[in-house]
Design a protein around this nucleic acid. Structure first.
Lengths: 194, 194, 194, 194
DNA sequence: AATGAATGAGCCTTCATTCAT
DNA sequence: GATGAATGAAGGCTCATTCAT
């Protein structure tokens, strides 16, 4: 039943999705939806929470061991992320920033997940910096995490619309793109305008 | 009048924005809005088109000279982009992926702008590759462009919510993040899982 | 089970009372209510009938002997009425005119009880008239009965909301108010506009 | 438009009256009702307020001169009341206690009117008591006012359902019924159980 | 005998959209 | 050219009522 809701929300967005359609897609009557999931708001929140949890779990399961080298962790996390998103396109649509237009309360819900991922990535970047004895400002760490997460999101969207683009390929592209840049930053080899 | 519409759409999103509010904010009567801009859809499309054009113009003006070195062009473009976004937050809200309500046809409109920027970035990447006599697959070029654009979007959103974050700082962070990664890719120094 | 229904109907009125609440308050499941009492309408009708019967019985028991002098009968009846109403506020709420939702057929049900009481009162008035060899039109008898019943209802409601007002006090007030008026009417000492 | 609403509320009561029917009866579309009168609650409140005001005005106009003898004032007020009720049966249905089932907020509204009338009547009774140098407890005055108002309400309802019953007749019956009773009370000729 | 589970039907409310002026 | 006034259509939510067990 929540699956149907996620499908509808993914297709039309929160506002445009109608409870009628959700109920019909779920093959049940509307009052039943209200009986089990409460209002439309609660239903949406529940969907986001469930999907966010599943995505976080998938990534955590992929990373597996938080004591491995940072680059391996990042690689594993990216791979798990792209794989999950490829396998659950509707979930991704609901979670991605695209869906954040609707009312602050939902933004908060999905935003929490994003921040958790960004925080995890920021942790990795910090670890990596320590590994190479590099220095990097706290603020830069967060900005970089945002950039990395953003590029992952963007690539995920793009991969979703590009037939033949595998999760591994996307993860690989992003890893190459990001890791060298991060490495240089840590070694303080900064680019600067001439 | 379009300004009012952009403000409303930015504040509430497409669906939640009401024509009543737009008309009131514009200081005119509702029928006038319909007379000049047609339906709500057309109005939104027109807004997006206008704002997208302005953003593209700003970036183009920043880049200025398409014969300069690729890194300088990228830097100038990023700086122009972050500056414009900081100066026109409402426009950015409407243009950013956040506003791409599912199931609507406006996605196409904003998507066009995004693709134009991504194409420009892809061109830069190709140029840079040629400059260093590097090799890089066509598909990778596009994937990288998507990643870069995505990280720029993400950073723009994040900067919008982070007081004291200047456009220059954001551009600098992203430039450092991206340029080294691109450079390595071009030199075929790829990261690969052990 | 009917007790629960009466409580609910008294609290919320017919329309606003929900079968869910009634069933819950009765401590049984909803289908059981339907099994035993049929529809909501039938349930309400049954409640009214039961409460009306109980009220009538109480008054009849108070009057006791239909051969006593009319004033004693009236006094006894009033006292019994106010006592019963004070002791069963919910029953009174359901029976009183307040509950006669327009357009429903239950009006008939409660109305029957009211007419029975009014008829009894009318009989008393007729008896009293004969006692004093007075003359009084048939129509006047009924009008007076209505007036007396109405003032009793009104006083009952008022007493319900006035702490410290006893049944005896209410009955006494009404008896004084009514008896002299009736007496005068019977003696044809009518008030008429100057 | 409010007329239609009053008619509907009178026919079905607050809960059972539907905005659809009100709009249809008024010959306008439903949104128009909402535009002018707001929600169903506001509409009902407005109706009650209007009708209560009109009824109070009618009675006040009938009484005309507050310095006349109390019995004349009462007579004039009763006549005006019964006349108004006979001429505006729907208004009376909405105002009478029958309609008070629905939600406390409305009860308060109509109750205000009833208390105003009861207060006026109580004033008359007090005046009359002073005229005959009678003594009567404050509490009795209010109880009697309630009784009188109640009998008026009851008679009004009954007259509404009794063809050929004129307002004058009803007023006359009630005046006879009440005035002697009040007179006796003031002269302390109280009835008491043997 | 008793109930958890399910629904058809309807109501209040809103909003994009259009006439008549 | 501009608008006050009006509406068709649709959506969220509830409730009396009934099966299948």
């Amino acid at each position: 039943m929540k699956d149907a809701a996620v499908r509808c929300f993914a297709r039309h967005g929160y506002q445009a999705a109608s409870m009628d359609e959700i109920a019909e897609l779920a093959g049940v009557s509307k009052p039943l939806v209200y009986l089990y999931l409460g209002s439309k708001e609660e239903l949406f929140t529940a969907c986001i929470r469930r999907e966010a949890g599943a995505l976080l779990d998938a990534v955590a399961a992929g990373v597996e061991d938080r004591s491995r080298p940072a680059d391996e962790q990042l690689w594993a996390g990216l791979l798990a992320f792209f794989t999950y998103v490829a396998d659950h396109p509707d979930a991704w649509v609901v979670l991605s920033r695209r869906a954040w237009t609707q009312g602050e309360q939902f933004a908060a819900e999905a935003s929490r997940m994003r921040e958790e991922i960004a925080g995890f990535v920021a942790g990795l970047i910090g670890d990596a910096a320590r590994d190479v004895h590099g220095v990097i400002a706290e603020r830069d760490v967060h900005a970089l995490a945002q950039a990395l997460v953003g590029s992952a999101e963007s690539l995920a969207d793009w991969a979703g619309g590009t037939p033949g683009m595998t999760a591994k390929e996307a993860a690989s592209t992003l890893m190459n793109f990001a890791w060298a840049g991060l490495g240089n930053l840590m070694k303080s080899e900064r680019w600067s305008p001439r």
